[in-house]
């Protein structure tokens, strides 16, 4: 085909070209394609698999167990305790950081590369792009969490062993039940992970700055943990996004209590909805003058 034929494309005399309108599906494919092309995303997912193995190996080779940490006392000779010890450590900043590196970047990187004008002059609306970025970020957070959990639990059980676990009330939990509870405990992290993802998305939209988008949620997470550790703030605790990180404790007590888990659904959903709504409004109203 000659160059001039290329130029004509299609007849130009008709009314406005009505093309197949791209939906959320096309935008999702585009956003996930971009993520998969980024080295940092591959590195994060690889790290989520490899780092827990290294951590378990190193911890296991320590002469003394970390006695004053939850499940630390039994971690050197019980794989379930090891997996829960790593969980207790991960919630301090690893989980918020893991999701922020993608979610805190996904809007601000369009500012960094000056590409808002590139994508917003096609046939996809701001709202569609917003939801595509949100869905892809949440999906990444859940995949990363699942890899981290699977790697930690597998490494702990293979390296440390599958002995019956001593629960938080001193009860003995046989291996099969312990595995279920450990997996369930890791699974409860999905709720605050989604909350932190939405917080990072908000900072990414609002700050237009990749560094702020990534660092701010992590710092806020650390501050909320500090506040949560203070005495006399019981009324504040249900509102902290870090409180759901501890909801799993109830699963390992005897009798089991699930109240904190229900609170955790409300807290995480509340943060997610508020952050997403704010981010959506900011993006919708914003003038794209840069780039």
């Amino acid at each position: 085909m000659s160059a001039t034929d290329v130029l004509t494309g299609r007849p130009t005399a008709a009314g406005p070209t009505t093309r197949r309108r791209p939906g959320l599906g096309s935008a999702l494919r585009w956003e996930s394609r971009k993520l998969r092309a980024q080295l940092r995303v591959k590195a994060l997912l690889g790290g989520a698999v490899l780092v827990p193995i290294a951590v378990v190996v190193v911890m296991h080779s320590q002469p003394r167990p970390p006695k004053d940490t939850l499940f630390g006392r039994f971690a050197l000779d019980n794989g379930f305790a090891m997996a829960l010890l790593v969980l207790g450590f991960a919630v301090q900043w690893v989980l918020p950081l893991l999701t922020s590196i993608v979610a805190g970047n996904i809007f601000a990187s369009e500012d960094q590369h000056g590409t808002w004008k590139t994508v917003l002059t096609r046939s996809t609306s701001r709202a569609t792009l917003f939801w595509a970025k949100t869905v892809v970020s949440v999906a990444f957070a859940l995949v990363a969490l699942a890899l981290l959990a699977a790697s930690t639990v597998t490494a702990s059980l293979l390296i440390v062993g599958r002995q019956p676990l001593t629960g938080l009330s001193g009860q003995t939990i046989h291996a099969q039940r312990a595995l279920e509870l450990v997996v369930a405990s890791w699974a409860t992290m999905a709720l605050p992970m989604v909350g932190f993802t939405c917080l990072a998305l908000l900072f990414s939209v609002w700050s237009r700055n990749v560094a702020v988008g990534i660092a701010a949620p992590v710092v806020i997470g650390l501050v909320m943990q500090l506040v949560g550790a203070l005495g006399g703030i019981e009324s504040l605790r249900p509102f902290l996004l870090t409180t759901p990180f501890e909801a799993w404790h109830g699963l390992l007590a005897e009798p089991r209590f699930t109240g904190p888990l229900l609170d955790s659904v409300v807290t995480s959903a509340g943060w997610s909805v508020v952050c997403l709504a704010a981010a959506f409004l900011i993006l919708r109203r914003r003038d794209i003058t840069g780039g």
């Binding site: 406005p16 070209t17 009505t18 093309r19 971009k34 092309a37 590369h113 000056g114 590409t115 004008k117 590139t118 002059t121 096609r122 046939s123 780039g291």
Partner: peptide, 14 residues
Amino acid sequence: LDGVAGFIESPAFY
């Protein structure tokens, strides 16, 4: 923007 294309200032890509 159906039927409209172009670029603003210098075009930016990924």
